[in-house]
C-alpha cells in the first residue's frame, strides 16, 4: 500500500473542517475528500459537537424549481459561475466560496437561509450532470434555474412574474405589520 502523504492529509482535513463548518453532510465529505469514514465521523463530532444526520441526501431536482428555492438557487449558481469563469476556482473550492458569498449576501440583506450547503453542492452536481440548466428570463435577462426538458421560449422568471401567493407567508405579514407600527410610533 502506498504511504499517504502527511501534507495532503492535513490539507484534506482542513478542507473537511471547512465543509463541516459550512454545514456539509457526511456524504458530501465522503465524496470530496479521501479521508476515511471513521475519521470524518470523528471530525464531524468534534467540529459540530453532535452526530451527523442520518439518511439519504435530498435527490429531487423539483425542489430547485419551486418559487423561493428557485430564487436562491439561481443566485447561488450565478455566483458560482462567476467564480469559475473569472476567479480561477475549481470544483469544491468554487462551491465553498460561492456559498460563503451567498451567506454573506443573506446576512447583509437580513434574509433567511433557504439553500443549505448540501443543497448547494447537490445543485452544482445536477448542473454537471445536465439534470438542470439555466435559461434567460425574457423580461429582465437574468439567468434562472430550469429543467432542461421543459419549454423555455418566452421564459419569465419567478421574480418578474410572481405567483400570486408567493412570499405571502404568516411571517412576512407579521414583519410588515411590525415595520408599519415602527413607522407610526
Amino acid at each position: 500500500m502506498a504511504r499517504k502523504s502527511l501534507l495532503s492529509e492535513v490539507k484534506e482535513t482542513q478542507l473537511a473542517i471547512e465543509l463541516i463548518e459550512a454545514g456539509a453532510r457526511l456524504q458530501v465529505l465522503e465524496s470530496e475528500t479521501a479521508l476515511s469514514r471513521e475519521r470524518l465521523l470523528k471530525l464531524y463530532k468534534e467540529v459540530r459537537g453532535e452526530s451527523p444526520p442520518k439518511g439519504m441526501l435530498p435527490f429531487s431536482t423539483d425542489w430547485f424549481l419551486t418559487w423561493l428555492p428557485n430564487v436562491h438557487s439561481s443566485l447561488f449558481i450565478n455566483i458560482y459561475r462567476y467564480l469559475i469563469k473569472n476567479g480561477n476556482c475549481e470544483g469544491i473550492e468554487g462551491v465553498l466560496k460561492a456559498y460563503k458569498l451567498y451567506q454573506e449576501y443573506l446576512k447583509t440583506n437580513e434574509i433567511e437561509e433557504v439553500l443549505s450547503f448540501t443543497r448547494a453542492w447537490t445543485l452544482v452536481r445536477f448542473f454537471d450532470s445536465k439534470m438542470l440548466e439555466t435559461t434567460q428570463c425574457s423580461k429582465c435577462g437574468g439567468h434562472f434555474v430550469v429543467h432542461p426538458d421543459d419549454l423555455h421560449d418566452d421564459y419569465l422568471c419567478g421574480l418578474c412574474h410572481m405567483p400570486s401567493r408567493a412570499g405571502k407567508t404568516k411571517k412576512a405579514k407579521e414583519a410588515l405589520e411590525a415595520e408599519q407600527q415602527g413607522v407610526a410610533a
Binding site: 430564487v71 436562491h72 439561481s74 443566485l75 450565478n78 455566483i79 459561475r81 462567476y82 449576501y105 440583506n109 434574509i111 429582465c140 435577462g141 437574468g142 439567468h143 434562472f144 421574480l159
Partner: peptide, 10 residues
Amino acid sequence: HSHAAILMAG
C-alpha cells in the same frame, strides 16, 4: 435585492 443580485452576478 435578490432579483438585483441575480442580475449582478450574471
